[in-house]
């Protein structure tokens, strides 16, 4: 399939993730010994450092901001984007361990999710590298009666699991389902069968995944079809879920209905239905990016087919 060539499997994709985890460890160390205020003060030099010394990421960020804002991005926009990114990493230290007491978290669209949960209907939650997916854990901690799992790429899963182990204990670690094993999707199915929720980030394609070019902020971007195919095979409803950082220790969690069924059961017409679903996701993501332009954390050439 020609689409297979469109894989963003370059240093670009992995580099931000690596830096991200290094800084997460630094943040955990500092905030544990010196507290939140010290961590927060450090965000300024950290933001300045990354803004100054990551010209390639900066070029990608600028291209994204130009398109999301609909005007040429200014230095202030880039600063806010980088600062927001650093701040979500700092906040993760608290959010990942469920210590949300000092945060102001509002939730939009919870009714749609609650109806499903109460009916015992398993759902997939599609997120993106937009804001903080960890903020969604606040829902689990606020007495969500069903299990919440997150499906993620194996290498990241190992690192994130280590962080969760440090912060929150074994119960949280168990909620991560690593991709890349033949039975990964069997685990997803079993959580959904028990009426649980499985979250995944649907905007980046891990190595080897199939992609579909969908219009995003006015230009075709390669997006993974895997999440949509998974929803089609399982025949479960999909909701969109984002944890948007709206200010200092302020988050807005947004749930949106996405699709009752991504594609009909059986393989006939599935490919077209999956492609249409990817395009619908791209439109929803685009609207979120226009509303919250500085929550975007894909610091690589998002539109480029490498």
């Amino acid at each position: 399939m020609a689409d297979a060539a469109l894989n963003p499997q370059s240093e670009w994709v992995r580099a931000p993730e690596r830096g991200n985890n290094f800084w997460l460890r630094v943040m955990i160390g500092i905030t544990r010994t010196l507290g939140w205020r010290a961590g927060h003060v450090l965000l300024y030099p950290i933001t300045a450092y990354f803004l100054a010394f990551s010209p390639r990421q900066r070029a990608s960020a600028r291209q994204y901001l130009d398109r999301a804002l609909g005007r040429p991005a200014r230095l202030a926009d880039l600063w806010t984007l980088y600062f927001t990114f650093a701040a979500t990493i700092l906040d993760r230290v608290w959010l990942a361990s469920g210590r949300t007491g000092d945060f102001s978290i509002t939730v939009q669209g919870l009714d749609a999710l609650r109806a499903r949960v109460e009916a015992g209907q398993g759902c997939l939650l599609f997120g993106a590298h937009l804001g903080s997916f960890e903020a969604l854990r606040a829902i689990a901690d606020a007495g969500c009666p069903v299990e919440v799992s997150i499906l993620m790429h194996e290498a990241n899963a190992t690192r994130v699991k280590a962080v969760f182990d440090t912060l929150g204990g074994a119960g949280r670690a168990a909620a991560i389902i690593p991709l890349g094993s033949p039975d990964s999707m069997l685990r997803v199915r079993e959580v959904l069968e028990r009426g649980g929720l499985v979250g995944l980030l649907a905007d980046r394609a891990p190595a080897g995944q199939r992609l579909h070019l969908a219009d995003f902020l006015g230009h075709p971007a390669p997006l993974p079809t895997g999440p949509h195919l998974l929803a089609a095979v399982l025949g479960v409803p999909v909701l969109l879920a984002f944890g948007i950082r709206t200010g200092t220790r302020r988050y807005e969690i947004i749930f949106r209905e996405f699709a009752e069924r991504v594609a009909p059961a059986g393989r006939a017409g599935r490919e077209a239905a999956v492609a249409a679903s990817v395009e619908a996701y791209a439109r929803e993501l685009e609207a979120m990016c226009r509303a919250h332009p500085t929550n975007w954390f894909n610091f690589y050439p998002f539109w480029q087919a490498p």
Binding site: L179, P182, D183, S184, L186, R189, G208, L229, L230
Partner: peptide, 25 residues
């Protein structure tokens, strides 16, 4: 094959042979 193929395969095997493939195996 990838893990989504594995899921479809597990569904087909269960239908055809009555063998449930579970992740905890």
């Amino acid at each position: 094959l990838d893990s989504i193929d594995a899921l479809e395969l597990a569904l087909a095997v269960s239908k055809a042979y009555g063998v449930q493939l579970r992740s905890d195996d």
